[in-house]
Nucleic acid binder design. Structure first.
Length: 657
RNA sequence: GCCGCUGUAGCUCAGUGGUAGAGCGCACCCUUGGUAAGGGUGAGGCCGAGAGUUCAAUUCUCUCCAGCGGCACCA
C-alpha cells in the first residue's frame, strides 16, 4: 500500500503497487502526457517502474534539468540505432551525456564523414516519428554477453563482462533494436523530439586509453525544444567570434607561424598588453613580499637528473648538445656523436633554478618564508596535437614563484597566497572563481600521517581565508596535494589558472636546507604557486573573456584621434600629444577618409575610445569622444578628456579606492 | 602521438585535368566628407612541400609539413 509524497508535501495513498505513470496520471492527465521519468527518493527510474513501498516522488518532464539529460541520453541511443540501421557493419560501444549534448563511440573500419550526418539525422528523425515504445528487459550476465557476442558486438560484450558482480543487467528495446543500458529511458522515441543536431566527428580511444583502438566518435547536441537548440548554436557562434586567434589578427596582437611551431610572435600591440599585465602583477608581488629573480634558460642534464625531471619528462624537454656542430662536411651535424655528459636542457620549469639561488649561502629560519618569483620563460616539447593557439604552446612564461618555508608556516603562506590570488582575479574582472583541493592519489610517496598533515594544512588555510572549495579526490601530485583555481569567463567556460602546490620532495632532492632556531639543519617546504599560470594563456583568456573589448588599462591602443577634414590635422596632432602627456597610448588617423569610415575601422579593431576632431573642436580645443559600443559621442574640452581617460586608464591596483 | 577535416592573394573564401577568380585590405588618383564602408585605377599567387599517374596536375594518388576539431598528454 504505497504512500507517495509529492514535492509539494501532498501525500497520495494507493491500494496496490503503482507505476510512475499511474501516479502522474492521478495528478493530472496532462502531466501524465508530459512525464518522461520519475525520481524516487532522489533516484531516477523509468516511468513504468513499479512502486511498492512508500516513497517521495517527483515526475520528471522535459523542462527539468533531469529531463534534458534524459533527452540527451536517449538521443545518444537514437544515434546508435540510426547508425546501425544505415551501417550495419558498425559496432556500438558507449554513448554518454555530456555538457550541452551527447556523443556515441563506434567501431568500424571506414571512418564516418560529416556528409553522413544528413542521412543519420534523417534516420534519427524517422525513428522519432515511428514513436517506438521503450521496453525494459532484465537479463543474466551470461545471456547478455552471449547475445551481444552473437551479434558481433564485441565491445558491448566486454562491457557486460566487466560490470560489477551483482549489478542488475538491463537491456532496453526500441523496435528491433536493443542496447545494454542502466537507464532510465524516455517512454518512447517520440519524447526525444527533434531539437538535436549532429555536430562533429572525432577520434577517441576505447576506454580513454591511448594503447587501445581508436574509435569514431560522433558528437551531438540535443535540447528540449527548437528555441534552446537555436540559442545553443548561437552561443557557439559567439564563442567563435571571440576566438583569440581571430581577434589577434583583427587587433594585430600576435601571430604564429610554422617556423616557430607553438611559440608566439608578439606584435607591438600585443606586447603592450603583455607588459601592462606583467607590470600589474609585478607590483602586486612586490607589495606582497616577493623577491623577483631571473634564472638561466639552459641548464645541465645533471641538474634535471637530480631534480627527478629527467627521468619523468626528458621526452618533453628540448635537449641541446653542448658541442660545435659540423656544418662543413655535409655529414651528420655531430660526427663524433653526442656526449651524454655534455647535454643541456632548456628549462621546462623554474623550480630547480630557484633552489640553486636558495642554496647560495647559508639560510637561517629567520630568512623564511622566502618568496622567490620569476616571470620565467619555459619550453616544453608538447605533443603536436596538444598545441592550440596561444592557450597551449611550447614556449610560455610562467608567473612563477616558490615560497620556501617551514612546515608551521604553510597555513599562513597558503592563506596569504589565496588572498593575493582572489584579489588579482577580482581586479581582472573574474567574479566566478572556484577552488579545488586535489588530494592524495593512489600512487604516492610519504606516510598517511604526512598526507593528513599536508591536506589539512591546505584545507585549514582555505577555511581561514573564508574560501569555499571542492575536493578532487586522488588528483594530487604523487608527493603532495595541491590547490587549483578555476575561473569562469563571460560565456561560462571554465579555465584552470592559478595553482598552489606543496612540495617537500624537491628541497630534499636538491639538498636545500636552513638552520633552525635549535641550530639544526632542516629541510624547508616549497610552495610552487602561480596566479595566471602562463602569461600567454592568460592573455588569451582575457582576450576571449572580453571578446577583444579589453578594459582601458589593458587596451593596446587606448585612444585614436581621428580627423574629419585635413584642416584639423594640426590640432589632431596637438590633441594626441596632450593625451600622450597624460599617460595614454594614443594614435592619430589623419587619412583622407570619411569619418564614418574611420569610426568603422577603429571600432572593428576594438579601440575603446575614438576622439573625433573637426573644425569646431579645433576652434574650441575640444574633442568629440566616442566609446566603443556606443552610438553616441560626447564633446568635451581636451583637458577634461585627458583627465577623465587618464583616470579610467589607471590599472586597478593603482586606483584610489 | 592517435583519428578526422582543411591548406588557393595580406585577410575571408570561390574554382578548374589545359599553370587562376571575388570581396575586403594595400598603392596611386579624384573627393575635404560630422561618428560603422565616397568613387576610380592598379599592383599582388611556386594554388603548403615532395614524389607518382598523365601528352598535360593547383585539380587525381601517395608521403611529409602545418592549421583546425576531438582523443591521449599537460611536471
Amino acid at each position: 500500500m504505497p504512500v507517495i509524497t509529492l514535492p509539494d508535501g501532498a501525500e497520495r495513498r494507493f491500494d496496490e503497487a503503482v507505476t510512475g505513470f499511474d501516479v502522474a496520471e492521478s495528478i493530472s492527465k496532462s502531466l501524465a502526457k508530459k512525464a518522461l521519468a520519475i525520481r524516487l527518493d532522489g533516484e531516477l527510474f523509468d516511468l513504468d517502474h513499479t512502486i511498492e513501498d512508500d516513497a517521495r516522488l517527483e515526475v520528471v518532464t522535459r523542462t527539468d534539468e533531469d529531463g534534458l539529460d534524459l533527452i540527451r541520453h536517449d538521443a545518444a541511443h537514437l544515434l546508435a540505432q540510426a547508425v546501425k540501421n544505415l551501417f550495419p557493419e558498425t559496432q556500438v560501444t558507449i554513448g554518454p551525456v555530456i555538457e550541452d549534448g551527447f556523443y556515441y563511440d563506434f567501431s568500424r573500419k571506414t571512418p564516418f564523414s560529416t556528409e553522413d550526418f544528413e542521412a543519420i539525422e534523417a534516420e534519427m528523425k524517422r525513428l522519432v516519428d515511428e514513436d517506438l515504445p521503450t521496453r525494459r528487459e532484465v537479463v543474466s550476465r551470461d545471456e547478455a554477453a552471449k547475445r551481444f557476442e552473437a551479434q558481433g558486438e564485441h565491445y558491448k560484450a566486454e562491457i557486460v563482462r566487466d560490470l560489477p558482480e551483482g549489478e542488475e543487467i538491463k537491456v532496453y528495446h526500441h523496435g528491433d533494436w536493443y542496447d545494454l543500458c542502466r537507464g532510465p529511458h524516455l517512454p518512447s522515441t517520440k519524447h526525444i523530439g527533434k531539437a538535436f543536431k549532429l555536430m562533429k566527428l572525432a577520434g577517441a580511444y576505447w576506454r580513454g586509453d591511448s594503447r587501445n583502438e581508436m574509435l569514431h566518435r560522433i558528437y551531438g547536441t540535443a535540447w528540449s525544444n527548437e528555441k534552446d537548440l537555436k540559442a545553443h548554436l548561437h552561443r557557439l557562434e559567439e564563442a567563435e567570434r571571440r576566438d583569440h586567434r581571430k581577434l589577434a589578427r583583427e587587433m594585430d596582437l600576435f601571430h604564429l607561424q610554422e617556423e616557430a611551431q607553438g611559440s608566439v610572435f608578439w606584435h607591438p600591440k600585443g606586447y603592450v598588453m603583455w607588459r601592462a599585465l606583467e607590470d600589474y602583477l609585478r607590483r602586486r608581488l612586490d607589495d606582497d613580499g616577493y623577491a623577483e629573480v631571473k634564472t638561466p634558460q639552459l641548464l645541465d642534464q645533471k641538474l634535471w637528473e637530480a631534480s627527478g625531471h629527467w627521468g619523468k619528462y626528458a621526452q618533453n624537454m628540448f635537449v641541446v648538445p653542448d658541442a660545435v656542430p659540423d656544418t662543413e662536411s655535409g655529414g651528420p651535424l655531430f660526427p663524433e656523436g653526442v656526449d651524454d655528459a655534455r647535454l643541456l636542457a632548456i628549462k621546462p620549469m623554474n623550480c630547480p633554478a630557484h633552489v640553486q639561488i636558495f642554496r647560495q649561502g647559508t639560510k637561517s629560519y629567520r630568512d623564511l618564508p622566502l618568496r622567490m618569483s620569476e616571470f620565467g620563460c619555459c619550453h616544453r616539447n608538447e605533443p603536436t596535437g596538444a598545441l592550440h593557439g596561444i592557450m597551449r604552446v611550447r614556449q610560455f612564461t610562467q608567473d612563477d614563484a616558490h615560497i620556501f618555508c617551514r612546515w608551521d608556516q604553510i597555513v599562513a603562506e597558503t592563506q596569504k597566497f589565496c588572498d593575493l590570488a582572489s584579489s588579482v582575479y577580482r581586479d581582472l574582472g573574474f567574479e566566478d572563481v572556484r577552488i579545488a583541493l586535489a588530494t592524495r592519489p593512489e600512487q604516492r610517496i610519504g606516510s598517511d600521517e604526512e598526507w593528513d598533515r599536508m591536506e589539512s594544512a591546505l584545507g585549514e588555510a582555505l577555511t581561514s581565508a573564508g574560501l569555499d572549495y571542492d575536493v578532487l579526490e586522488g588528483e594530487g601530485a604523487f608527493y603532495a596535494p595541491k590547490l587549483e583555481y578555476h575561473l569562469r569567463d563571460a560565456i561560462g567556460r571554465s579555465w584552470q589558472c592559478g595553482t598552489l602546490q606543496l612540495d617537500p620532495l624537491l628541497p630534499e632532492r636538491l639538498d636545500a636546507s636552513y638552520v633552525d632556531e635549535d641550530g639544526a639543519k632542516k629541510r624547508p617546504v616549497m610552495l610552487h604557486r602561480a596566479i595566471f599560470g602562463s602569461m600567454e594563456r592568460f592573455l588569451g583568456i582575457l582576450i576571449e573573456d572580453a571578446a577583444g573589448r579589453l578594459p582601458l588599462w589593458l587596451s593596446p591602443v587606448q585612444v585614436v584621434v581621428a580627423t574629419i577634414t585635413t584642416d584639423a590635422n594640426g590640432y589632431a596632432e596637438e590633441a594626441a600629444e596632450a593625451l600622450r602627456k597624460a599617460g595614454l597610448r594614443v594614435e592619430t588617423d589623419l587619412r583622407n577618409e570619411k569619418v564614418g569610415y574611420k569610426v568603422r575601422e577603429h571600432s572593428a579593431a576594438k579601440v575603446p575610445v575614438i576622439a573625433v576632431v573637426g573644425g569646431r573642436e579645433a576652434e574650441e580645443r575640444q574633442v568629440s569622444i566616442r566609446r566603443l559600443g556606443s552610438k553616441q559621442s560626447v564633446t568635451m574640452s581636451l583637458d577634461e578628456a585627458a583627465a577623465e581617460l587618464c583616470n579610467e586608464a589607471t590599472p586597478p591596483d593603482l586606483r584610489s579606492k
